[in-house]
Design a protein around this nucleic acid. Sequence first.
DNA 1: TTAATCTTATTTGTCAGACAAAATAATGCA
DNA 2: TGCATTATTTTGTCTGACAAATAAGATTAA
Lengths: 237, 237
Amino acid sequence: MDTLKIHTQTVTLVDQVEDKFLNYIKEKNLHAGDSIPNELELASALGVARSVLREALSRLKMMGMIETRTRRGMILTEPTILGGMKRVIDPRILSDDSIFDILGFRIALEIGICSDIFRNITPEDITELEEIVKIGTVVGNNEYAPVSEYTFHAKLYEITGNKTISEFQGIIHPIMDFVKSKFKGLLEPINIEMKKKGEIVTHTDLLNLLKKGDEAGFRKAIEQHFEVYRRFLDSRK
Amino acid sequence: MDTLKIHTQTVTLVDQVEDKFLNYIKEKNLHAGDSIPNELELASALGVARSVLREALSRLKMMGMIETRTRRGMILTEPTILGGMKRVIDPRILSDDSIFDILGFRIALEIGICSDIFRNITPEDITELEEIVKIGTVVGNNEYAPVSEYTFHAKLYEITGNKTISEFQGIIHPIMDFVKSKFKGLLEPINIEMKKKGEIVTHTDLLNLLKKGDEAGFRKAIEQHFEVYRRFLDSRK
DNA sequence: TTAATCTTATTTGTCAGACAAAATAATGCA
DNA sequence: TGCATTATTTTGTCTGACAAATAAGATTAA
């Protein structure tokens, strides 16, 4: 009956040390800026070799939780929540399913920030968006020049004032480009179809709604702006 | 003039190896399931000691990108996009600012998934939600018993059919609990005030709107459901 | 011939020790 | 006291070793 273990989850010493260390700082109530014992002390306190400890610490360094300087020892730093994500968010690494999930995630988030945008937007933001739209040339069916496409949406995220949301958009962006180019053949017919029916929502349309202060209209427009991806995602199920 | 470097961004060998390895699998177009050379080969190919290579690989193992079994070598696995996040999402590790960002992130996302919910919801989902609401006892001002609170919202995320979104909610949840308990003194007055004015939206209210198929009403209600946190976040700026 | 068992070889996981480089602390000198 | 030099500490990197697990091959039994 002990053949139930599915994944032979061999918990290595490194895994345990990583866990123990995280518990250690939680229990000791240590925060960013606090210094922690040097490697030799930590290793002997945990009863492991320095190499094992270093493998565990290496993980936390990747997450931006630890900063080291020679001789000055190690100090805790505020981890970047999305730091790990940055490494693996790459179309060449992820499966299509994951990519579609991320696409859906991003669309939902951008719809969800509408009320934040209207709560925080300033006249300066509007003029900045006007500049961005002015520069942005439409290069195809519902397709903007890449730079403008990115800056327009990045600006929307920025208006929320939420750094994590902004960072998320930055990390996710390559995925959007990838989907656009890889599935161009599938997206274009949808765009053309929508254009024929006059269903396309441009950045200019969005900006006008922002200027008018029409939150409900803006939200509907944003949803419509992503409608091509919605239909694409639905077609992939 | 070369004192401009702010962060003494000492790029260690481990950092470089991590980068090189990621580029390696991208260029070779390797995917989950593919096997990769053993440690000795990789180390010598990269011109570094095994310990350095292992520190880099350890990071990728944490992200779920690599799985190892003795003698069978290493194989690539589909990374869990949020795997790294899981480690650091802890109120005892993050600063208040980060926590508030995450709170805002979560609220935006839940508002954003409204259309996904209405697109995918089934009668079975409705009955399941009814069960959850039935079990959930209101324990205070706009406060549900923790289990019901969690399962109700988790179910909403699940309905989207987007695994990444669901996983995100699971990871974020401890933050919600933390905010509720740590800032109880600030949240309760807002809740009482809202209750007095009849502005509270309960899970039952949300469920009824779902049953009616009233998407616009549901979205408004969800926003209202989170209004207490909105006001709280605004008060912290 | 086939099945079960034993042996071998390979690969990861862990340990120990060493040295270089960098940066701080301590010391000596003007 | 202020500056230059030296010593010391700590991380970063390398080398080499062995244990444990297990796949593959060899051997034996039915």
